[in-house]
């Protein structure tokens, strides 16, 4: 089942002589449980695609459908509710609130959604436990390492029953071992039924995805082939990677 659908999405900034096509006719469908990476150089439209997919921005034309709901025509309140309940974001710089502990940061979106504090906290704790951070729940962001901060940010993005996880260069300035564990966590969320879109220029991160879409000047120019099925892997005629 498709959690995110972009149908012929275009975005134009400015008008007349200063007009810039940020995105042109993007079609993208992300199913429950799948991880899609969007790769492209700076200025290719990756971040614009992500903000539109998360309903933070309106496309100039085309449609965005999140978990079966068409975003076009929704009231501001409905959109805000959709974002709180369905969509989780992970940013490059983690965006944790400095004055709140880890568990307060994680449960904040639930509290904003009107869930009683106690219940929100217990869901927040569960999300932190799932990422191996239960013992850091009462720490403030500045007491956490970079890797821990990013894990808190992922816990916040998947807390409750979010079905869509959107991540913009989620490994930020982390070293490659920590970057890998960030991708492992996103993948674990996908195995739990979340659909995820990660934008990155890093091929090592993108290689964790089921599908990699290449973006160039606002257009999806290419994508990787679907991964081989177990039957194909057992077929001796299908080439496999090897170190020789």
């Amino acid at each position: 089942m498709s959690i995110l659908e972009l149908q012929r999405v275009s975005k134009v900034y400015g008008e007349g002589d200063t007009e810039v096509d940020a995105l042109t006719d993007i079609d993208l469908s992300v199913n429950r449980g799948s991880l899609v990476a969007i790769m492209g150089p700076s200025g290719s439209g990756k971040s614009t695609l992500l903000t539109i997919a998360g309903s933070l921005e309106e496309p100039t034309s085309g449609d965005v459908i999140i978990d079966g709901a068409r975003v076009r025509g929704m009231s501001r309140n409905d959109k805000a509710r959709l974002r709180r309940r369905t969509v989780g974001y992970v940013f490059q710089d983690f965006n944790l609130l400095a004055g709140l502990t880890a568990v307060e940061n994680v449960s904040l979106p639930l509290e904003l959604d009107g869930i009683p504090m106690k219940k929100a906290r217990s869901k927040g704790m569960a999300a932190l436990e799932g990422l191996g951070l239960a013992d850091r729940a009462e720490s403030y962001p500045d007491q956490l390492s970079g890797g821990e901060r990013q894990r808190v940010a992922i816990a916040r993005a998947v807390v409750g029953e979010r079905s869509l996880l959107l991540a913009d260069e989620p490994s930020g300035a982390l070293d490659s071992v920590n970057g890998e564990s960030v991708m492992r966590m996103i993948l674990t969320a996908c195995h739990g039924g979340v659909a995820a879109v990660v934008v990155t220029h890093d091929a090592k991160l993108a290689s964790w995805a089921d599908r990699v879409v290449f973006l160039r000047d606002g257009q999806a120019v290419d994508e990787t082939l679907p991964p081989p099925s177990p039957e194909e892997l057992l077929n001796p005629d299908v080439p496999k990677p090897s170190l020789s």
């Binding site: 090592k204 990699v212 290419d222």
Partner: peptide
């Protein structure tokens, strides 16, 4: 360039998948 880029990323996906199972 894109043909080679896609091939390399696909190869990287295959390697990463082997590493996935911890």
């Amino acid at each position: 360039i894109q043909v080679h880029r896609r091939y390399l990323v696909q190869l990287m996906q295959q390697w990463t998948r082997m590493k996935e199972d911890e």
